[in-house]
Nucleic acid binder design. Structure first.
Lengths: 118, 118
DNA sequence: CTGTATCCCTACGGATACTG
DNA sequence: CAGTATCCGTAGGGATACAG
């Protein structure tokens, strides 16, 4: 597999990425924005079950990492749009890699889990 | 990017995988085992900072998912070896995909983070 | 050697209500 | 509309000590 030594030490680059996409909501938001910018309320309804507080938190984290931009329009009623940056769009590639692998293997994992439990 | 609709709904296959590799220790253990079986104490010293309790917990979860096997040898002193299954070795592929992407992009994320904070 | 048992503690997610 | 403010409960990680 040719993994570099200490490839996954606690503070390495991969941890930065894993800590982000390991988050429960981040991937959902990034995928939701993959077709273009969305407003806060649009994200909220598109991502079922997320509370406004958690949506804000996650969006702030994505903004901080430069994966999402936040644009405020000086209008009444207020309008705020969130959009993936180039870096954010790049993130769709590894996300998709995981999705593909998951679709091929997750069933086996779940089956193992049920056999082990039952 | 051609992502399937609802590709990352909360209970989908990808969540199963992300919940596992998003775990702080799972990836470290899987990578540590990539060169072959290791004993409990070997894992413990190879993975700096992990407590025995958490190591056991994580290994049990990996065993449950069929990613790792646990072999007890009837010896004194006791010897237990952990080894990746075929499925566990398959997991190295998406892990490596993330590692590659991370090495290409994590520096930018960290830089964005520092600029945003500072 | 290979784990358990216990205790602590806090970080995080969710619910709810409220504001500019 | 786009968030904040509060409160809460709990799961989970870490430290430490102990057991088979």
């Amino acid at each position: 597999m040719d993994l570099a030594p200490d490839a996954f030490a606690r503070d390495c680059a991969s941890r930065v990425v894993l800590d982000r996409i390991g988050d429960r909501w981040t991937v959902l938001i990034v995928v939701a924005l993959s077709d273009g910018a969305l407003r806060f309320s649009q994200l909220r309804s598109k991502i079922e079950g997320i509370t406004p507080k958690v949506l804000t938190q996650t969006l702030r984290a994505l903004e901080r990492d430069g994966l999402v931009t936040r644009t405020v329009f000086a209008e009444v009623p207020p309008r705020v749009e969130y959009e993936l940056t180039d870096l954010g769009r790049d993130l769709l590639a590894p996300i998709d890699a995981i999705r593909v692998w998951a679709e091929d293997h997750a069933a086996r994992i779940v089956a193992n889990r049920e056999r082990h439990d039952g």
